[in-house]
Design a protein around this nucleic acid. Structure first.
Length: 257
DNA sequence: ATGCCAAACGCTGTTTGA
């Protein structure tokens, strides 16, 4: 089972690219983020015609997450994190597919920092950490896939200096991600591409970032022990980022046997 | 210190956000 995460940056703006990638990569599961569309604007017919069942938690204008399953209908387990006081942000959806629990996550960016948006990011991470602990208790294969908006370590960015004041690289953001991982989650990409290999999943549209490979690694698939035991491959579909009308993220995936 | 860029919305530009 190959599970991918792809921040599409507007599902309608990206629909030709999304359908093209689904057709060539044929992921069994695709977790999408930044749909930037509410339920009635999700191109569900095109997704079904491509052979995928889908559930989504949409939102007009920004945010929005979905889970697509090839030849299957994801069985929704929850939308939103428990005890989230702000239900206006569509950033979390969770389903079970073929015995695997899969979440599509769009973690808040948090810029500018310091400020209320950064506080919101850290509070959201605390709620994710609490929910992730509850998921581990189930002792099932679980994959938490998404745009975490956290650069785990200095090696995961093209420039430590350029990101020094960015919410994505702050010590507090990294510490929260470590608290999550240290519950017992495996970072699928790093498990199969250990340091010092550099892999990026995002390249800004601005300042020629793609052309000079000025990227960073912020899209992650965290595996429960029961999922990590089945991990056989993981990588980034980097070429997708170089296409016309591309998202600023590249699809990132892990394969479980 | 600021803009670089892109998408949505809705209309020839503004807002929002990354």
């Amino acid at each position: 089972m190959r599970i991918a995460t792809y921040n599409v940056n507007g599902i309608n703006a990206r629909l030709p690219r999304l359908l093209e990638w689904l057709d060539e990569a044929k992921p069994d599961v695709a977790c999408l983020q930044e749909l930037k569309a509410d339920g009635d604007r999700i191109p569900i017919q095109a997704i079904e015609d491509a052979g995928y069942g889908a559930i989504w938690h949409g939102q007009k204008g920004f945010n929005g997450v979905a889970i697509l399953a090839r030849g299957a209908q994801p069985v929704e387990r929850r939308r939103g994190l428990p005890d989230d006081p702000d239900v206006t942000h569509s950033r979390y959806i969770e389903a079970e597919i073929d015995g695997v629990v899969i979440a599509s996550i769009y973690l808040p960016n948090g810029n500018p920092q310091p400020g209320p948006k950064f506080d919101y990011k850290l509070a959201w991470m605390d709620r994710l950490i609490d929910h992730a602990a509850a998921l581990l208790v189930e002792e099932k294969p679980v994959v938490l896939a998404g745009d975490y908006n956290v650069i785990p370590k200095d090696i995961d960015t093209f420039s430590v200096r350029a990101m020094a004041n960015d919410a994505l690289a702050q010590p507090e953001s990294r510490a929260a991600l470590r608290r999550l991982i240290h519950q017992g989650w495996t970072d699928a990409i790093r498990a199969l591409h250990p340091e010092p290999e550099r892999l990026y999943t995002f390249w800004d549209y601005q300042a020629g970032a793609w052309a000079r490979d000025a990227g960073f690694r912020i899209d992650h698939l965290l595996l429960s022990p029961q999922a990590a035991d089945r991990l056989v491959a993981a990588d980034v579909d980097k070429a997708v980022r170089g296409r016309e009308k591309a998202s600023d993220h590249a699809p990132t995936w892990a394969e479980l046997r």
